[in-house]
Simulated assay, not measured.
Amino acid sequence: MGTTSVETGQRALRLPAAGTALALVVLAGCTSGTGQAAGAFPEVVIAMPAWTGGQANAAVAAHVLREELGVPVRLRELSPGQAWDQLDQGGVQVVLEDWGASPDKRRLYTAQRMSVVPAGDLGPVGRVGWYVPGGYAAANPGVLDWRNLNEYADTFASAESDGRGRLLTGGPDDASHDEALIDALDLAYTTVPAGGEEQLIEALRGADRDGGAVLANWWQPHWLHEELELAEVELPEHTAGCHREGGPDRCGYPDIPLRKYLNAVFAEHGGEAAAFLTDFSWTAEEQNEVARMIAAEGMSPEGAAARWAEKNTERIAGWLGEG
């Protein structure tokens, strides 16, 4: 039976920088003839992001690799940018949920270096936007049109926003174009990092409970939408190119099909493990079920994945071509 470990930080096992050909020689020389389900790889390393939906993906995939295929698995906690770099270098074999936040790295590694290959859609479609509690929106319907937001700036102001309306965001390193959009729309707001997903959730829960006013950068899919009614502010429609350098930035966020990527050497020589990760996809509802167990019920990602897997044996069999 395989094992799973979680690793934090920057350290990685790296393939030689000389390229794919040399990497194959090294892998073949070290592991040829092992007959493992991961082919030439002694373990599979999965990039695990900070948000709970991404943790749910990684945990369930790790559970299937470990329990069904007998493959040792390591989960590496990485930011999206770090994950792309490690995919290129061979420090991780798979990214399961890419939101398109690093287009330059994607083009470099998939089109130029060809060290990373697409592995299909994860299933859910991501949507980022600005949200307020449903109760506040019901009492103040005008807030749902961006053209009216300046009328509510004083209501959303906080000690951290220097007299301007506060747009609450997650962590300081989260990718967004909120500041550019605020400037382009001439809004009297400023972004204020809450610290992370957990802090954002607490702010939204508190506002929902107390009837307060919070404007937050938030996203779907997310399990919190099943607990709270959140209303999305209508931003200008997204158009192609509006976020590019020199673009007008007068548009909201696009819908984002969440995609998977594999290290190219692993995709070709990772055996059943690579085939499973290519076939792995699920719904937003399934992801939310596991994510809620992690975030709301306090379960470990591994424990949540095990509970979900126990109830979804047919789903797993389908991923493995056994259904």
Rank of each mutant, 00 (worst) to 15 (best):
A138S: 10
D174K: 00
F156V: 04
Y152N: 11
Y189T: 11
F41S: 14
E289R: 04
G321T: 10
P141N: 03
R14Q: 03
E151F: 05
W84C: 00
P103I: 06
V44W: 09
G247Q: 13
K260I: 01
E97Q: 09
D121I: 11
E226L: 13
G241H: 12
L224D: 07
A275H: 01
A309D: 04
E286Y: 05
A159Y: 10
T20I: 12
A21S: 14
A137V: 07
R205E: 12
A274G: 12
E68S: 03
G120D: 14
R244H: 15
Y189K: 05
G142M: 13
G90V: 01
M114W: 04
G321R: 07
E229A: 12
A207L: 15
M293T: 02
D255R: 14
P118Y: 07
G91E: 09
V6Y: 08
F156I: 09
T239S: 05
R127Y: 11
S161Y: 04
L22M: 11
Q220I: 14
A153C: 13
T110E: 13
L69D: 01
A38S: 15
P193H: 11
E68K: 08
I294C: 07
V132W: 10
T278C: 00
K260L: 11
Q55L: 08
L13G: 06
P133K: 08
W51G: 15
L27N: 00
D174I: 03
E314W: 02
N140M: 11
N150Y: 00
P141A: 02
G321Q: 07
N150V: 01
R147F: 14
P133V: 05
G270H: 01
E197L: 05
M114K: 15
Q93F: 01
D174A: 13
E322S: 05
V125M: 07
L230D: 02
D88K: 03
A216I: 04
A58E: 07
K260V: 12
C30E: 03
G142Q: 11
E310A: 15
P301G: 06
D145F: 10
V132R: 00
Q287Y: 01
S79G: 13
T190S: 09
A61K: 04
V128H: 13
A274V: 10
